[in-house]
Amino acid sequence: MDRVQQREIIEFIISRREEFQNKLLSEAVEVAPKINDILQSGNIDLLKNAEKMVTYVVERKENELISFAKQEGIAWAEHSLTLTLKLEWVHAIRRTVWHYLFKYDQLNTHVVSISDYRAMIYEMETQINDGIDNFLNSFFISYSSYKDELISSQRKIVEHLSAPIIPISPHIAVLPLIGLIDVYRMDTIEEKILMDISNLKIRTLIMDLSGITDMDIEVIHQFQRVMSGVSLMGCEAVITGLRAELVRKMINLDISFDEYASTKGTLQQTLADYLDANLI
């Protein structure tokens, strides 16, 4: 399609906007009843956006089309709208566009050879379908990327909450650890410990491991490096509540925390020692 024909098609559709929208809604059986809810909850105007998408596709505005698809992907991901609805909506747009291209062709008959007509139809089909497919591809990538970032961010928040450093005096804090600790969580714990030692001016950090039943070898080595980091920050590390299973594994691996931390039996005993010593 040349530019004149592209503009004619867009004007043809816009001049029949209400008819076009009704046809589109009739094609999108599942989406149509939800269109107002989507507008109210996500401020996403499906009908207006459909017209914008069609304009970009017909006029071959690829950069604008891809940018718009990315915006749509983020908007749908932000408001947890399902991909099933989006897929049905875009396919409904595709069918509706072809319906109006057929009507446009009927009203604008040109005297051309059969071979030229077939070539024109083939070019039009390629342009429309490729444009819509490019939109879908960019939309899905944007949607998926945003969801992945959101999940990662939420997981990081949860991990930070699962490693609460509790100040019990101006310079002493307690870090109770429970549950499974993997390499990812240990990275989060390391970041939080070192940041809080600096920000809270912690001089003594008591780490209670009574809620930890086991650690992988890699995690134990990483925990040892965390203890080294605590020491380098000028902070005294105290480890309490080591379980027998974990101690046996450390003995077999010839791993010790003695160089970087002192160990005590229970958190209660440790707090009592500091209270008795008037350090709190």
Rank of each mutant, 00 (worst) to 15 (best):
R243Q: 15
S256P: 06
M186T: 11
D182M: 04
Y184L: 03
L209E: 00
I206R: 01
G234I: 01
I255F: 11
D216V: 00
K192G: 01
E190I: 14
I193P: 03
K192I: 07
S231A: 07
D216Q: 12
I193F: 03
S210H: 06
H221M: 05
R248Y: 15
D258P: 02
N252S: 05
D254V: 06
L242Y: 13
F257I: 12
R243P: 07
V230D: 06
R243A: 03
S210Y: 01
Q222I: 00
Q222V: 00
D214T: 11
T204Y: 07
M233I: 04
E191I: 05
R185Y: 07
Q222R: 13
L246F: 13
D182H: 10
E218A: 12
V183W: 00
F257A: 04
L232C: 07
T204N: 05
G234F: 02
M250W: 01
I251H: 11
R243T: 05
G234M: 00
R203V: 00
C235T: 15
F223G: 14
L253C: 08
R225Q: 13
M250V: 06
S228Q: 14
E259Q: 09
I212F: 01
I197D: 03
D258T: 13
M186C: 11
A244E: 12
S198T: 09
G211V: 04
T188A: 04
L253V: 08
R248W: 09
I206H: 03
M207L: 09
Q224W: 01
M215R: 02
D196H: 10
I197V: 12
A237F: 03
I251P: 06
S198W: 00
I255M: 15
M250A: 15
K249E: 09
C235L: 11
I189C: 06
I212E: 03
I197P: 02
Q224K: 13
M207R: 06
G234P: 01
M227R: 04
V238D: 04
I181S: 01
I255N: 08
T213A: 14
I206V: 09
D216W: 01
I206C: 05
M250T: 15
K192R: 09
R248L: 13
R225S: 10
F257Y: 12
A237S: 12
I217R: 14
M186A: 11
A261K: 03
A261M: 01
E259A: 14
L205Y: 02
R185K: 14
D187P: 10
D214F: 10
M186Q: 12
K249M: 12
I251A: 14
I255D: 07
L200N: 08
G234C: 02
I239P: 06
L232K: 01
D254G: 14
F223E: 13
K249F: 02
Y184T: 04
L246I: 15
Q222C: 00
C235K: 06
R243V: 02
K192T: 11
G241T: 06
L194M: 08
S256M: 06
T213N: 13
S256N: 08
M233D: 02
M207Y: 04
M186S: 11
E245H: 07
M233R: 10
D208R: 04
K201M: 10
E236F: 02
M250C: 11
L232H: 02
K192H: 08
T188V: 14
T240P: 11
S210N: 06
